[in-house]
Design a protein around this nucleic acid. Structure first.
Lengths: 335, 335
DNA sequence: CTGTTAGCGCATTCAG
DNA sequence: CTGAATGCGCTAACAG
């Protein structure tokens, strides 16, 4: 009898279906003995409630949707594992949905919402303008992870991440402290909010140090190895002169370093490189990457906690800004 | 009107619910014009069928469970994305479940089976002995991806992967061809089937070349950076002498290289390194990794195809062995 | 505390 | 080709 229903359990235990339902849902209004008895019958029969029927009835699931934009970004892969773990901790199961870099995450979210009716959503990556335009239409508790923006103000959208501008200010300041003044920057397009913030932070750091930011030293790259590799090659092709590079992610840094080395430069002897994210690889590569480490485990945990509070207690959305940390590796050299 | 039902569509389109249902399920017995009309109404209304109701009715889901053992293995992260993509291609949605390295994947699978009733499962990583002991109890179509073993013979368990023994034979033979004879090996424990096969292949290659395999040159490592780093340090601590290293995964190779470099060795000048897997990073690191590339996209695609055939047409389980490819990078030097 | 009953949204006979 | 009616398994009033 592999597929029992609560009816069968009701029959066997001599109770009614509603009592069984109450036991399943751990309602208080069941006599302890009855509950015990029903529980035993259920165990003996190997009964498992039908999730579909349950969810059809209550119109929602116990799942969270993780919407990931940017599948080639290793930082996100790492982060997803943490999210899953945290979700499980709170009794939810996470369903991952990968999106193309140029997909619209709001449209995708709406589709997911209708299809699987998650109780909450967590967005990894995403464009602020897409959110501004469309997020109003989605009403489930949500969290935008690894991104904090003051331009987004929705009652059901929390944000958890580091202050990208401050973090990249720190990164570039570090390069400047080490004596660099010709600093190239590699990162995402202006339509990417974190990229924009990181760029602003970088420029601010230069300005504050009296260094003129040169647009010629800015290379456009997506958050993947290949794109970064090509971006650096373009920089080199136009004879950009720099002694240091700020890459807006470790993955970008790796791709860039590969291009630099292929072109005959040494890191850090000829070019110093500082990354961003602090993926595991950054600690095991040669040279060890100097990078801004995002506290990904904390971000994941806090994201889930916030989401669960929003879901279960109707808590208001919050913005949490966590502190990144500078990992002093070997990829930056003082000059 | 965020939550439409087929009833609404029926009303708007002037048809009955059954016609709508037929259109949704792409049944042939609907007049083309009617179908077109209904389709238009559905699009205009942004209607999405309720998955729960549908699945409750047809008593099965359209989801596949991906059971991943080993969250720190970047190769699996890459691979999962491919699996998701392939699943979507076939109209299924994949649900990922991450397991601890020392969890029992069969127990986990049984739980997943009861909870979400997937139509099929794909296992990433897993111990052959666990399968031998417990897989008989699970009856849904399954695929063991990236692992091929002749010790597993279940009517509902397909396997897709490379011939680990042959592949590592190739890897070590390559080192030997390059003049190496003192070859260290870093890899998983004997309880890991791929590790065992890769070890056997490596030893065979050495035997065939008349090289004595020295147990002192074998280091035990899990498939993560840190473990590999420590394993290499142990090898160095016991003054193992070698000019080349066969690492059973790229991640292991990276961890080992980091340890080597820290100890003052250069790669490949002092020690040549060959890896396994061919993760994206292997092409963008310095030096570019010489490695055995698993055709992960193919493995993912074939795994899903096989699974879908088993599910939809009751096709028998199959074993598919794919050819890996040697990526000649810069981490191996002839001596 | 417990039982009866009416749907949740959809697929599917069975009649037209 | 199309429509009306039934029930999948479960929860939640409502009525004892």
């Amino acid at each position: 009898m592999p597929n029992m229903t609560i009816k069968d359990i009701a029959r066997i235990s001599g109770c009614s279906v509603s009592t069984i339902s109450r036991v399943i849902n751990d309602r208080p209004d069941v006599r302890p003995e009855t509950k015990e008895h029903v529980l035993k019958v259920m165990r003996d029969a190997g009964f498992v409630p039908n999730t579909n029927a349950r969810q059809l009835k209550i119109q929602q699931s116990r799942s969270l949707a993780f919407v990931v934009k940017g599948t080639r970004n290793i930082f996100f892969s790492d982060f997803l594992v943490q999210l899953q773990r945290a979700a499980t901790l709170y009794g939810y199961n996470g369903i991952v949905s990968y999106l193309d870099e140029n997909a619209n995450e709001i449209d995708a979210a709406e589709k997911i919402l209708r299809e699987i009716k998650p109780k909450g959503m967590i967005f990894l990556g995403g464009s602020v303008s897409n959110f501004q335009k469309g997020f109003a239409s989605i009403s489930v508790p949500s969290v935008l992870a690894t991104l904090v923006s003051d331009k987004l103000n929705f009652p059901n959208l929390s944000m958890v991440g580091v202050d990208d501008r401050a973090a990249s200010y720190q990164a570039v300041s570090y390069l400047i402290q080490q004596g660099h003044s010709k600093i190239a920057v590699l990162g995402g397009p202006v339509t990417s909010y974190p990229s924009m913030m990181r760029r602003e932070g970088a420029q601010q750091a230069m300005r504050d140090a009296g260094i003129q930011f040169n647009d010629n030293l800015y290379g456009l790259s997506n958050y993947d190895f290949e794109s970064a590799y090509h971006a650096m090659n373009s920089l080199l092709a136009r004879r950009a002169e720099f002694t240091a590079l700020f890459a807006m992610s470790d993955v970008i840094a790796f791709g860039a370093i590969r291009a630099l080395v292929s072109a005959g430069f040494r890191v850090p002897e000829d070019v110093s490189v500082i990354g961003f994210d602090g993926i595991t690889m950054s600690r095991y590569c040669v040279p060890v990457m100097t990078t801004i480490v995002q506290p990904s485990e904390q971000i994941a945990l806090q994201s889930i906690e916030l989401l669960v509070r929003q879901i279960e207690h109707g808590a208001p959305a919050q913005t949490i800004t966590l502190q990144p940390e500078l990992q002093r590796g070997e990829s930056v050299r003082a000059i």
